[in-house]
Design a protein around this nucleic acid. Structure first.
Lengths: 346, 346
DNA sequence: CTTATTTATGTAATCGAATACATCAATAAT
DNA sequence: ATTATTGATGTATTCGATTACATAAATAAG
């Protein structure tokens, strides 16, 4: 209950019979402090339970590292993004940084609010899954000298130099579709994610290229624009099932839509992969236990987070270094849902 | 590139031909500002793109709300906790607060680090899933006047008055076990979570009480202490399967362990629920799509987050209000994995 | 027409630390 | 012995806003 006003450097100074400057020196392990005074100060600090005010520190030392990194993701309930967040947190913690995780929810206003908040709080840097809506603001922030790293996505507009960590979405899709084609599928439906995202575009690109590479036509009626959410996946699945001529395979371009799709198929008693094959983008820890075990393009979410945080910390300690674009490779994990010639387990 | 020093109140003041005090008044919509000056200041601010420094604000106004709430959870990759986080974020955002999400990972040092960080950052308050390891520190923080709300768990030691939002774990377990018993099961294994957690204890308590209520013996060999993680669930499942006399049902007391258990069972081709029935604590959005669809005790994670945030905001605006303990009720969602007399869908 | 009151604004102290500069003592160099 | 150098510490300013207090002008009350 005692709303004890926290002790300040002044209090410590008084107790140790030194000036606040000396206290500050002790806590910044400046070389020029007498062994004896050092001990006295430390003892006083200990006794008073003193910890320097990070707020005051930040106000004073202009470019002082706040030891906080901002992370803005678009869906904190999506396991893919929590994996990223986990990776970021891991590296941040190892470097004694905390993470301010924000959830833009693909919403323009929300992303704006969080962007402004993190820079106002003077975080050391920001890791951002950019929505397509705040390009100008992001650009301004970057130009203002705030270290930024993009993760998972980039702006199509390429006129800013920023560090980024992404996945080779196109090749991931390509391999998935290739697999289906080799299994004999000719009518492969694709459920697309949210409009205007680089990931959506690239994954669709991979789909197109694979069809083309194998001489298959790109058919409009097999393309289902959706919303990157479970409900959207379910909806698109309904639509695709009501086609006069049903597709024999589905490629769902993110985890949540795949889950929706799966639920819809299962609820109708449609056999996977016998009646219809399914491959999803994004693997999940429990993909093996789904009914049926899901063939998926695995993105290394955790590694994305790790790399992004690494990159950010590097940029923070060296703001003028060249921006780098790291592209990680996805992996096709073959399980039962796509059917197939080999009866792999795993 | 231009590391433009942000404009300060001084700059705005100069431009608008007023003092910094007036600028401050404008931004704190103090009543005593002439309409005309107000406009001038606003225009200058607009032009310079001025935003008050939150850091300076916090330093000055002692009990000024930082508009940041700290959230410390124990596993950010566990969907249950991300649901909580989502709920917290939702309410926080509605009230123009940002959330600093920290991941203690059930680790003593890590929790300590994050606790210290959030209070050092002068967050407005903290929502905490407490580990059993930092009781004294948490107590100190609370006594120091920092608003705290516990979510999901509480300290068994009850000598601090804190707001809390938890779930009635005991009744949840009870109902799950009751179900199994009514289905005819007599040997029900339980996979327990991490030691010393109130949730673990309460869920086990429910198990015991149900057995007792139906006159069944509590058998040591059916109790499997585990770690609340997937790997632990798998391990315990292995052990329980190698019992001379196999249990006919398993009650797994959290989502990740259930996933591990499921994977182990499926990989051995053990039929659920025919060979062995399974009920897990924690429902997940994709529980329906698991093989088989999972019967689960559903905790309202999102609501937990919402309530915790509500409570915290209330306490922040009124630090002396009485602490309340909110207990939400879990729900048994019956699906295929427990077998049973009714062929419910969903 | 004074004096009291209100309105609008400025001045200066403050929050808690960091730090440039000053000081003084002790030691080293000349 | 005198000056230069180094070491240890204190003094005072600064970061950017808020705010108690002061002041000046305008209005109301007497």
């Amino acid at each position: 209950m005692k709303n004890s006003n926290n002790p300040t450097a002044k209090d410590v100074a008084k107790m140790a019979n030194v000036s606040t400057a000396t206290v500050s020196r002790v806590f910044n392990r400046s070389p020029k402090v007498n062994e004896d005074t050092l001990k006295r100060v430390l003892k006083a600090a200990e006794e008073l339970n003193y910890r320097p005010s990070r707020v005051a520190q930040r106000l004073r030392g202009k470019r002082k590292n706040s030891m906080i990194i901002g992370l803005i993701i678009t869906d904190m309930e999506n396991p893919f993004f929590s994996e990223i967040a986990r990776g970021v947190e891991e590296i941040a913690y190892k470097n004694k940084n905390a993470v301010m995780v924000c959830n833009s929810n693909e919403d323009k206003e929300k992303e704006k609010f969080y962007l402004e908040t993190v820079v106002d709080e003077q975080v050391s840097g920001v890791i951002l899954v950019p929505t397509p809506y705040n390009f100008k603001l992001v650009k301004k922030i970057i130009n203002n000298g705030c270290p930024v790293v993009f993760v998972d996505r980039k702006f199509s507009n390429n006129d800013i130099r920023v560090d980024s960590v992404t996945v080779n979405n196109k090749s991931g899709s390509f391999r998935a579709i290739e697999r289906l084609i080799k299994l004999g599928h000719r009518r492969i439906a694709v459920i697309k994610g949210l409009k205007k995202l680089s990931t959506t575009e690239e994954r669709f690109e991979g789909y197109k290229e694979a069809l083309e590479a194998y001489g298959l036509p790109l058919e409009d009626e097999l393309i289902f624009p959706s919303d990157s959410k479970e409900e959207g996946g379910r909806q698109s699945t309904k639509e695709l099932l009501s086609l006069k001529q049903r597709p024999t395979a589905i490629f769902s371009t993110n985890n949540l839509m795949t889950l929706g799709c799966l639920e819809e198929l299962n609820s109708r008693g449609i056999k996977i992969p016998e009646d219809i094959a399914l491959i999803g983008f994004d693997d999940m820890p429990w993909s093996t236990s789904l009914n049926p075990p899901l063939t998926a393009v695995r993105q290394p979410g955790y590694e994305l987070g790790i790399s992004a945080a690494d990159l950010l910390l590097k940029r923070i300690s060296n703001p003028t270094r060249n921006a780098s674009d790291i592209v990680l490779n996805p992996e096709l994990i073959v399980r039962k849902s796509c059917g197939g010639y080999s009866k792999r387990k795993k």
